[in-house]
């Protein structure tokens, strides 16, 4: 066990973790942040995607111990004052959520994309979401939702 200090969703957190504990297990089991899903557990499906220092990663193949001193944003960290973020709302408006298991990871990948590329083409949106599997929607509504958010964020600027 070792003690780690990190910032989770803008709040400082201190806890003890085992050396081999994965970041997704720490978030879900130790911190109760069950919005982040554990799908394959082997870095293939993207359901566990979170932002580590602003960069999207599969938290099932990151070690909790190595998050010491770093900043993590999960799906729970996107809402502001109890209001859904624009991407979360767009997923609902476009029917981009069916079973919902991929949605948190998809939304974190979309967040990472739009932070780095405010005006993505459809191909860039699809490439940015290519590490996230969805077995329900066929992806089209998800791409539509992300395109819509990109457009409204540009308009707001």
């Amino acid at each position: 066990m070792r003690k780690i200090n990190c910032i989770v969703n803008s709040k400082p957190v201190s806890l003890e973790v085992e050396d081999g504990r994965t970041l997704v297990d720490m978030l879900r089991q130790d911190l109760g942040l069950t919005g982040t899903k554990k799908g394959c557990g082997t870095g293939d499906c993207g359901a566990c995607t979170v932002l580590l220092d602003g960069v999207s990663v599969n938290s099932c193949i990151c070690l909790a111990a190595l998050a010491d001193g770093h900043e993590i944003t999960t799906i729970e960290g996107l809402q502001k004052d109890g209001k859904l973020s624009d991407i979360q709302q767009a997923f609902i408006d476009h029917g981009a959520v069916q079973c919902g298991f991929c949605s948190p990871g998809m939304i974190m990948s979309a967040e990472y994309l739009l932070e780095n590329n405010p005006d993505p083409s459809d191909e860039e949106i699809r490439r940015a979401l290519s590490g996230n599997l969805c077995r329900c929607t066929g992806y089209q509504q998800i791409v539509d939702a992300v395109r819509d958010v990109a457009a409204s964020r540009r308009q707001a600027d």
């Binding site: 994965t22 082997t42 990151c62 190595l66």
Partner: peptide, 22 residues
Amino acid sequence: LAGGTVLLVRHAAKPIDGHVIS
């Protein structure tokens, strides 16, 4: 252990014993 995208996938399939040097 570099980025962990290979080692930790292996760890998920079969826990690694011994020492890991990040």
